[in-house]
Design a protein around this nucleic acid. Structure first.
Lengths: 111, 111
DNA sequence: ATTTTGAGAAACCAAAAGGTTTCATATAAA
DNA sequence: TTTATATGAAACCTTTTGGTTTCTCAAAAT
């Protein structure tokens, strides 16, 4: 049972669940109603999200309200950020190179 | 065969492969050597990365060099960024609230 | 020309993922 | 008190995943 954030967000249904509870807490049933799979299936997705810390379930009477712990996504954020730096740096370099090329051509045209 | 970026990066071996080729291209065998599973297993991981656009395989003689297309990670970057905004905003609000509380207490102490 | 090497494909397998239906239990509502 | 509702757990099933071994093929090296 690998239960890390990367694996948790790999499933599109779980990403959608996360999005639903990102702004306001919802109980299990109201989340499940938005999908056309069984409540139990959705419950299991929510459990996975909870197990890796992306969600917290708070009992309130017989209901259980789920709130997102978005900070947990920092793991993904940090991971992707290192690569974003690389690829945007490369884009910048490319742009600069093209700019230089352009300048050279303009000089050449004038001569 | 769901082949999206989120699913591709869910596997730790694939994340490591991506990291290996992020800075310089490597052929299949030299990537495989760094892991203790079979070359074929690693090859399949690389194929998955290639199929979702995170990797490009370029034939060179009998070797095949793999280069990372990190820009493809923008899908993840964009997705996580929307939530990062939310959670950092919430942290800011909390901090501001605590600051105000502190200020109030100081005024109270002086009276 | 023969052998070695790098890579891809095929067939197969066990475990994990994602789903289902059914049952149990606690709380709320009638 | 009885009934309805929200949730959790169990047993089960199918497909996908991650791995294996074996085979083939083309390019390099001998």
């Amino acid at each position: 049972m690998r239960r890390d954030v990367f694996q948790a967000i790999a499933d599109p249904t779980r990403r959608e669940i996360l999005n639903m509870v990102a702004y306001k807490s919802l109980n299990v049933n109201s989340v499940a109603e938005h999908f056309d799979v069984s409540r139990t299936a959705i419950y299991k997705h929510m459990k996975i999200l909870a197990e890796c810390g992306l969600l917290e379930m708070k009992q309130k009477g017989r209901e259980r309200y789920c709130e997102a712990h978005l900070e947990k996504l920092h793991e993904v954020s940090d991971w992707v950020e290192q690569y974003r730096k690389i690829w945007s740096q490369r884009l910048d370099n490319l742009e600069e190179y093209l700019q230089q090329l352009q300048t050279k051509n303009e000089l050449h045209d004038k001569s």
